[in-house]
Amino acid sequence: MKQTLRPANLAKRILMSEYFVLYLTIVYLIVLTPIIPRLWHPMNIQNVLSNMWPLLVVAIGQTFVLILAGIDLSQTSVMAMSSVVGAVVMTSSADPVLFTKSPLWGTLLTDQGGLMASSPFALPVGIAVMLAVGLAIGFLNGFSVAIFRMPPFIVTLVSMMLFSAMAIFLTKSENIRHLPDSYLQISKTTFSVVSGSLVIAIVLAVIAHMVLTRTLFGKRLYAVGINTTASQISGVPTRKTIIAAYMVSGLCAAIAAILYSSRLEMGRPTLGSTLFIDIVGANIIGGISLAGGKGKVTWTIFGVFFFIILANSLNMLNLSFYIIDMVKGSVILVAALLDVARNRIRKAQM
């Protein structure tokens, strides 16, 4: 009797495990290895990793907001805005043919480049400005949600529309090139693996993990996500907590913008515009629910890892982009279904 029950139990335990997605990724990699040997080619590993770090960074930001039972659709526009603004500050030359129509032309942007063009301070100032853009947009979102009690979906939808339109308006749809070398170095890889992006992403993940599990802010974040009213009466500064969470989300999107634009070697007004489903998808695959009160950085890491491996392997199979999109969508669907199934099992166990 016991013998026959074991496999089912084991399956259940694996399914319920926090590391389920990680196991799944490993199995997937093992299965793929004979089919796509190129998977382990250093060039590909480098490629996978350079895709992974920025997505991880922005997805972690989204995790903070999801724990609050919120959502941040504006992360993609934060990425566009901060990449454009950062590039405007740092660029060392701009083509008059492309940019004369830009509203910044002649003041903040000239054929001599941006404000900090060729200055040794271009890098720190540029990065500071980019982060400030992320924090500012996050603040606007958080402020609207927390103080005016507007639904997060609409607030961030509108700021997504607003700031992506703004990013396009500022540059009249043109990409800004000629960024400082030091900036481009951030995403340059040595030994196929090590890069500034890697360091930034891992440090950020560790900090985010500590913040969520160990700090006052983290604990309050979960509390607000579960029951805002009860938290408020218990002395939790709910408004500040909400604003802070959206600011973290914006900040993470800005850091991701640094990693992306450094790799692309340009400030791009449409940066990240198709990324929303990847960000939310990775979180869902990791097991974070939209209902709030639940989520861990490790889950996000697993989700991003799986998502990137999946996308990469599909690319290597030379599938068309729409097939890849459909598969990605299906995988997120399965992940969402798994979450439902897990909750049922958990309820049945109680």
């Binding site: 489903i277 939310v280 068309s320 459909m326 990605k328 997120i332 969402a336 439902v340």
Partner: peptide, 23 residues
């Protein structure tokens, strides 16, 4: 039936339906 959240469900069908049309 499957008790998925509308936001996620329709975000996914958005991807899949367009993918199918492109296909």
């Amino acid at each position: 039936r499957l008790r998925l959240v509308p936001f996620i469900t329709t975000l996914i069908t958005q991807t899949i339906a367009r993918g199918f049309g492109l296909f």
